[in-house]
């Protein structure tokens, strides 16, 4: 806060004010500067908040997908919040393979049942975003490298995911993320 006691010896300078006046004077100056500070901070809010996702981006936060044409063993890629999603129809062999793994040995322990919906264990829906640094793993399309554990393989830094899309080998710390989803009917799933 600025001092107001500038004295340069000018002849007409007023006599120094007493202690009482001095305190009141300081109080007003402090209050004025405080208000300016609060106002300045308040202005920062819109300037920062404008960079958050806008209303139209948030409105697209759910996607409905028709899964009736995905045969067992097949997978598709779709888009949810501008990010790819895998929807895989697991074969009984793949389900069995996933269930036979001891959960305790996993880096990110989760059972297949925890990653799917009751009665629809064959529908594995995960984000197609490697939990390492965000590449899209291979394994959804026919003939792509599915890694050493028969699920997905991320070629960027060599992360291997198993048939339940759990991380088994490589640098990724977590299983492929399961987004919020629900079955609207047997053939339509809503993600988000």
């Amino acid at each position: 806060m600025a001092t107001v006691e500038h004295t340069d010896g000018t002849a007409e300078a007023a006599p120094p004010t007493g202690g009482e006046g001095h305190r009141r004077r300081d109080f007003i100056n402090v209050a004025a500067v405080s208000f300016a500070g609060v106002g300045g901070l308040a202005v920062l809010y819109p300037l920062i908040n404008q960079m958050n996702p806008s209303a139209d981006v948030l409105a697209l936060s759910s996607t409905e997908v028709d899964i009736s044409r995905i045969q067992p063993g097949q997978a598709i890629k779709t888009i949810f919040r501008k990010q790819p999603v895998f929807i895989r129809n697991l074969t009984p062999a793949e389900i069995q393979q996933a269930n036979s793994v001891p959960v305790g040995d996993l880096r990110d322990p989760q059972t297949l049942a925890e990653r799917t919906r009751d009665g629809k264990a064959n529908w594995l829906i995960t984000m197609a975003v490697c939990t390492h640094l965000g590449c899209v793993p291979l394994g959804a399309a026919e003939g792509e490298n599915r890694g050493e554990y028969g699920g997905y393989f991320c070629p960027c830094h060599g992360s291997h995911y198993d048939t339940a899309a759990r991380i088994r080998k490589g640098p990724a710390p977590k299983n492929l993320e399961v987004p919020e989803f629900e079955f609207l009917s047997d053939t339509v799933v809503k993600i988000g």
Binding site: A2, V4, A13, A14, T17, R25, I28, N29, A31, A32, V33, F35, A36
Partner: peptide, 12 residues
Amino acid sequence: LAYLSYRQIWAS
């Protein structure tokens, strides 16, 4: 407040 502050500072 800014006005009062201005008047105080210029009071002398």
